[in-house]
Design a binder for these strands. Structure first.
Lengths: 110, 110
DNA sequence: GTAAAAAGACTGTTTAAATGGACATTAGAG
DNA sequence: CTCTAATGTCCATTTAAACAGTCTTTTTAC
């Protein structure tokens, strides 16, 4: 039996929600599974896994089908994603490039 | 040379933004790459790909590291994800189970 | 200034995802 | 009611991701 890894509940729910929103968007557009899979350049089996919230699919495939059916990704306001990227990169730039763990105090009282 | 598929710009920007937000959250927590990778149960190479916005990683890995560093997924309001799933499933339930394409009008005027 | 660890980049092997196809059931258009 | 295609489910093969490890550079703590 293949080893199965565990995920946190939050991560699992996010994948399930993503899948449900993709299924909703596809049905609202009246596209069949084959139709959407062909548009996204993936197989129908892969799309089924995505819509069922499986964790194993490539994020590129997931985001592509989400984009095609109009699921919004990371747009709490109406700024385009490129602006969000800019903002986040600015914040990252303010932090050290490497996270060096502080050395433990050496106890060599002998 | 490996065949490379194309993605829409929106999907690509979403993956880049996700990666940047994960990097920001990791640095804000002062975790090294190895530290976060270990916590998420993935390799350091995989985490590097995720933070660089590559499209090939499993969505489970991406969502897991995002969860660990506090990146919010699909929470425009403060409802828990389970509520969003419920709402979305209710909407899906109102639509037909299968999307049957309408038959093209048959022209048999001979 | 020094030492060590973090990060960047790469590689060969192992593991698993993606695929195309098959088959059965049944939902939905007409 | 009938017919067809959509969906569910499964499988063997192909393709690629994940991994552990290595090496180099340079950043950071002291």
């Amino acid at each position: 039996m293949a080893k199965q890894r565990t995920y946190s509940q939050y991560a699992q729910e996010a994948a399930v929600l993503m899948g449900e929103q993709i299924k909703l968007g596809r049905k609202q557009r009246q596209w069949s599974e084959k139709n959407l899979a062909d548009r996204a350049g993936i197989s129908r089996t892969t799309l089924q896994k995505i819509e069922n919230g499986e964790m194993s699919c490539a994020i590129g495939s997931v985001f592509e089908v989400a984009t095609l059916v109009g699921v919004k990704l990371f747009e709490p306001d109406n700024l385009p994603l490129s602006k969000h990227i800019e903002h986040t990169r600015d914040k990252v730039a303010l932090l050290p490039q490497r996270i060096k763990a502080k050395k433990k105090a050496v106890r060599d009282d002998f």
